[in-house]
């Protein structure tokens, strides 16, 4: 039951933040900082994880496909599983680990330090000021990071499949380009946007409401908020992935 309440509260929270952003001044500067936090700083981890995911998939799928003499389908298998599933999901999980946890604890500390109250006394909408730019940045950064993850992953699959093992590189790339349709890419982007809004809203919500949600005050409350933020958003990503996949298929 409380899940329903939380879901409603988080939706209102995210909506308030998005709407609040557009009443802010200096939106571009704030958005720049948001993109730096959620996009630029997550780029290295996304690139690294994307590469290794692609490398492993190249190996695993090659040894599975070669049993059926279908190793020529490696490009298809790698590209589709990355674009449809692994890209959006792993990107979201990595951004939660990199930016979401930091955001939850930062907002938690700002709550405890009364900085959020201070904004209110200055007639500044704290939600629009603190959370708004990050949510808008999320809408920009998640599809970008997902696309980068997908492309690097597909390249990783090429490295193991064609360079290390003996799938013809022409066949690999040909299969990648032929098998992927716009519907697959679109589905991946939809997932990226939904995951982004969900995870960043949850992380911000947990941090912002540290005083109400955490069972301890002070430092322990902040660490609890950060942990809960990561756990909740990771679980939500996987659950939402199942739902969206069943709708898209």
């Amino acid at each position: 039951m409380s899940v329903v309440f939380d879901l409603g509260e988080i939706s209102l929270f995210g909506w308030g933040a998005l709407r609040g952003f557009f009443t802010q001044r200096g939106r571009l500067a704030k958005l720049t900082l948001g993109i730096h936090e959620i996009g630029v700083r997550c780029f290295p981890i996304i690139a690294t994880v994307g590469l290794f995911t692609g490398l492993v998939m190249g190996l695993q799928l090659y040894y599975t496909l070669v049993k059926f003499g279908a190793e020529s389908a490696l490009g298809t298998a790698v590209a589709l599983s990355l674009i449809r599933e692994l890209g959006p999901v792993l990107t979201a999980l990595m951004v939660v680990g990199q930016a979401g946890s930091a955001m939850a604890s930062e907002l938690g500390i700002q709550r405890n330090d009364e900085q959020i109250d201070a904004l209110q006394t200055m007639s500044i909408d704290p939600l629009g000021f603190l959370v708004g730019p990050r949510l808008v940045a999320t809408l920009i950064c998640f599809p970008i990071l997902t696309a980068i993850f997908d492309l690097i992953g597909i390249f990783g699959g090429y490295l193991t499949g064609s360079v290390l093992l003996n799938v013809d590189s022409g066949v690999y790339w040909n299969r990648v380009f032929e098998s992927v349709t716009w519907a697959d890419v679109q589905g991946g982007y939809i997932k990226a946007l939904v995951f982004g809004l969900l995870t960043i809203s949850i992380c911000a919500y947990r941090g912002y409401n540290t005083h109400r949600k955490a069972s301890f005050p002070g430092v322990r409350g902040v660490s609890e908020s950060a942990t809960r933020a990561v756990v909740w958003s990771s679980v939500t990503v996987l659950a939402a992935d199942y739902l969206i996949t069943s709708f898209l298929m």
């Binding site: 590209a79 674009i83 599809p143 970008i144 696309a147 980068i148 997908d150 492309l151 597909i154 990648v176 380009f177 992927v180 349709t181 716009w182 519907a183 697959d184 890419v185 679109q186 982007y189």
Partner: peptide, 13 residues
């Protein structure tokens, strides 16, 4: 990257 994935790989128009 987003456009490349959509237009080249995903052949979107």
């Amino acid at each position: 990257a987003v456009l490349y994935l959509a237009i080249q790989v995903g052949s979107a128009r």
